[in-house]
Design a binder for these strands. Structure first.
Lengths: 209, 209
DNA sequence: TTGACATGAATGAACGTTCATTCATTTTAT
DNA sequence: ATAAAATGAATGAACGTTCATTCATGTCAA
């Protein structure tokens, strides 16, 4: 084969991380055992320890993966033709990327873990700051900013958008247990568009964005 | 003394629940051991089982307490003179009630637990529905509704407010680790007022609520 | 008033189980 | 033949839960 010399370390790691994602979203970090992960990945327990130092290392690696995903997403959003497109890309990705509603549950669990694990908290804060700054820049550059709501700076608008999107995601984690990704995305879009209309259309204009 | 015959069952229960709240907010549901709770409460492990059937029963009782707190809060909000006052009461209570940022961490953990425990999920949904309906009613009755944003129904506005408040609370759980309750409250109020201004002032009016 | 008796709140060592982690062994690829 | 990859039984710590025991307090007969 082509990869005689290439080591498959990266493949194995991501195989394990995928399995861990499924388990963690299903049972949470601390109710998932290493046996659960190995069974989901279809490998032995011991093998996990060849690729990760500990269970915590698995959690950290997943959090890191989340960080990289978000950064990639921010790049995609930058390419979008309009601000609304960018926001829709950024805030509905978790409905399709990965599987089912795994993503929502994972993010909520990540925040819960962050509320007591300083390392995770720091990482989540980093992701948040980078994203919020990125979105604030997109807002600052967009032509819509001329219709911007009274007295709000791009940074404030970005934070409002993030708060709302995160709150909607949290709701998604406990409602909508059985729902298609498409429907899930539709609902997230509705939240985002409501806010959008509020932010960037004048009250005396007709109610269409 | 006066209460020779009064049983202190309720006192003991709430003592245990207070201790559990501290532990859960600090370490999460599943990293907190019954020994942790007993140590925090200053009692023995066995005694907890005199007042609660199991660890899960403790968690359920806390979730139930949360539900009752929210209902009480909704009642207080109903008494408020204006809609803005009502919203401020409703969405900043967790900054003062209880201690420190325990409340935020607890709520995030509750959602995380709900993302995999159907019983908790159902309870959180109940709380949410009741609250959202209550707030929607307040909005519908308020004079501000005449300036309401184009095409949004009270129910939609309530949901937007809830999403935003919940998202801000989630952020609070991972930022602001060391902060006074007053400062915490101030920040939550800022979020709420930004949204308020957006919802109920026209774009061509000056930027004061 | 006294002391025997009853109550049940409170204790914490012990139990069975589960878990993260290790490592002697086997399998696979070269 | 050799080394790397993979296995899963074994280990010991930690957990939720139980329960035999303690003891302060209340009851009541004498």
């Amino acid at each position: 084969m082509a990869q005689l010399t290439t080591d498959n370390t990266a493949d194995r790691r991501s195989q394990i991380l995928s399995a861990a994602m499924v388990c963690f979203a299903k049972r949470g970090f601390h109710q998932t055992s290493m046996h659960d992960i190995s069974a989901e990945a279809g490998i032995s327990v011991g093998l996990i320890y060849r690729y990760f130092e500990s269970k915590n290392a698995v959690i950290s690696a997943m959090a890191d993966g989340h960080k990289r995903e978000i950064h990639t997403l921010l790049e995609s959003a930058r390419q979008a033709p309009t601000l609304l497109d960018a926001l829709e890309i950024f805030f509905t990705a978790h409905c399709c990327a990965g599987e089912r509603q795994l993503q929502s549950a994972f993010v909520v669990n990540l925040y819960a873990e962050g509320s007591r694990n300083p390392l995770i908290a720091q990482l989540v804060r980093d992701v948040l700051n980078t994203s919020a700054t990125g979105v604030a820049e997109l807002i600052a550059q967009s032509p819509e900013m001329r219709d911007a709501p009274a007295g709000m700076k791009p940074q404030q608008i970005a934070q409002l958008i993030f708060d709302t999107a995160r709150g909607a995601l949290m709701r998604d984690a406990i409602e909508n247990i059985n729902i298609t990704p498409a429907e899930r995305r539709k609902r997230q879009l509705a939240v985002m568009r409501n806010l959008w209309r509020l932010l960037f259309t004048h009250a005396n204009e007709p109610a269409f964005a």
